[in-house]
């Protein structure tokens, strides 16, 4: 009878020590919020492109520099300043068939940028999102497909608002926000550039 009691006491004490340690760890981070960079590379650009265009037999890239009118249109759609001068769009084909589009994006998380790839099908709907590089010490739950799957099948008409359309990862709100806004930006860019209705207008 005393043995389980001792075990319970030891477990409670351990949890408490861990908790205090966590809070003290936060105090140490106060000295340098960006902290030592904890870079975790999950995919290199080549690996990410190979994964998202797994079925493609040819890959190529196109660079798009929007005109001032296009930039203004993009900013109006997003309600947000677009800082990038130009965008690189990766494309894939299989036996002459369009395999869709992919963009490698970098969006600011809490302190550091997150690099990720967004793959859209030929119908301009999201097929896959992968986190390629995560640089912060915590919050990397956004790399999990449980979170990233939420973007599948979304298109330019979806708002992708955090905690309404996309459920943020608990404890990684800023990283979730970065991913959601990055995907939304990709959808707006590719729709503006490649949508047949846009091209016709």
């Amino acid at each position: 009878m005393r043995q389980p009691l001792k075990l319970m006491l030891v477990a409670t004490a351990l949890i408490f020590v861990c908790a205090v340690g966590t809070v003290q760890g936060q105090d140490q981070l106060t000295e340098s919020p960006d902290g030592p960079e904890a870079v975790k590379v999950y995919y290199t650009p080549d690996e990410a492109l190979a994964k998202v265009f797994a079925k493609a037999d040819s890959l190529w890239s196109e660079e798009w520099t929007p005109t001032s009118k296009e930039r203004s249109e993009l900013e109006n759609r997003l309600g947000w300043v677009v800082a990038e001068e130009s965008f690189v769009v990766h494309r894939g084909g299989k036996k002459g068939q369009d395999q869709g589009y992919a963009m490698i994006m970098e969006e600011q998380g809490r302190f550091k940028p997150i690099t990720f790839i967004v793959k859209l099908g030929a119908d301009l709907r999201v097929e896959m999102v992968l986190v390629m590089v995560y640089r912060e010490s915590r919050g990397d739950g956004v790399k999990r497909q449980r979170f990233l799957k939420q973007f599948r099948d979304k298109d330019g008409s979806d708002h992708l608002r955090l905690n309404r359309d996309i459920v943020a990862v608990s404890g990684a709100t800023m990283s979730s926000r970065a991913l959601a806004s990055g995907v939304k930006k990709v959808l707006a860019i590719l729709e503006l550039k490649y949508s047949p209705t846009e091209a016709g207008s």
Partner: peptide, 27 residues
């Protein structure tokens, strides 16, 4: 709660305003 944003055109186009200072805690 964690973000400051600003607009220079009365609220049409917005941008993040990063807040960085020495001793800035993570949370």
């Amino acid at each position: 709660r964690y973000i400051l944003v600003g607009s220079q055109d009365g609220g049409r186009i917005w941008r993040d305003i990063p807040v960085r200072a020495k001793g800035f805690p993570p949370d």
